[in-house]
Simulated scan of single mutants.
Amino acid sequence: MIAIPVAGRWSRRRLARRPLAAAAWAVLALYAVVILIGPLVIPGDPLAQTSGQLLPAFSPGHLLGTDDLGRDQLLRLLHGGQPLLLVSIASTALATVIGTALGMVAGFLGRGADTAVMRAMDIVLAFPLVLVAILMVAVLGGGAVNMTIAITISQVPYFARLARNLTLRERTQDYVRSARALGVSRATVLGREILPNLTGSLLVQATSTLAVAAGLASALSYLGLGLNASTPDWGYMVKAGQEFMFSNPGLVLVPGLLITVFAVACNFAGDDLSDAFDTRSHR
């Protein structure tokens, strides 16, 4: 009961020493609030064509202007962040679960299981991330579900390799040997003994992967392999606004900047988690 407030004070001190980390967590929290609640606070149809021309920012009734079809840019930005956030979180979560399970089994069982799992992961890693995602979407088709599956497959090997290496280290520890000597099943040892000791490293990897997933989701949408073109999406908005880069640069710069800031914030947050779980930095 005493550890919770102590941990809270320690976290505040750590964030005070790391302003970039504090800013990153604040940005991610702001993204979540604005993307999830923004459409409720500022209601409207992001597909409605309110005018027949391209309006600049600060036009009457359109704070950020409209696109070439007369659709309100602010509404499209608010709604366009939801697919990015949902696809990124879902693919990262799935990659974490699947990759961790495969890596732990490979590291704990060793021999044939280790060889089979790691060679399969090497095959996926032999191709560039974007190429793997593009190939999967090309086979499965577009849409949020298929995008999530494609990004998940491209990220599973990283979690599998991390979990496998950590499991190899943990399985030689005394607490694992004691559990095995007492007749505890392999599944129980993996789930109750080893997994809790991998959580910190896996959380750090997941936070960094969230940035990669957001980039891949945006790239697929930019290439026209993501959601339907009529669905607001930051990646596709960058592509659609390129034609008007010089006459109305905000159509490209604003969604592009939102994607970039989200990815950078995820990376800084991942660095902060890495510091938090590094016991040497607490001495």
Rank of each mutant, 00 (worst) to 15 (best):
V156F: 09
L166I: 02
G44W: 06
V6D: 15
Q242P: 02
L84C: 01
F262H: 07
L30F: 15
I2M: 14
Q205E: 15
V254H: 11
S208E: 00
L182R: 04
A150T: 03
V261N: 05
Y236T: 07
T207M: 12
L86R: 11
L85K: 05
I42T: 11
S154H: 08
G215Y: 08
M1Q: 09
A93R: 08
G256D: 02
R192F: 11
Q155C: 11
A219L: 13
T100S: 13
L77K: 12
V254C: 08
L198C: 12
A269Y: 10
S218F: 10
G191K: 01
V34A: 10
I153V: 15
R17A: 15
D122M: 04
L78P: 00
T209V: 05
L36R: 10
A116R: 00
P43L: 00
D233Q: 06
V184N: 07
V137K: 04
G61Y: 02
A133Q: 09
L86Y: 12
L63T: 08
T209P: 01
A101I: 07
A32Y: 15
Q82D: 00
W25G: 03
V27W: 15
L135D: 06
T199Y: 13
G256Y: 09
N197L: 02
M1T: 11
L210H: 06
I2T: 14
G224E: 00
D278G: 03
S178F: 14
R180H: 12
L78K: 06
T66S: 14
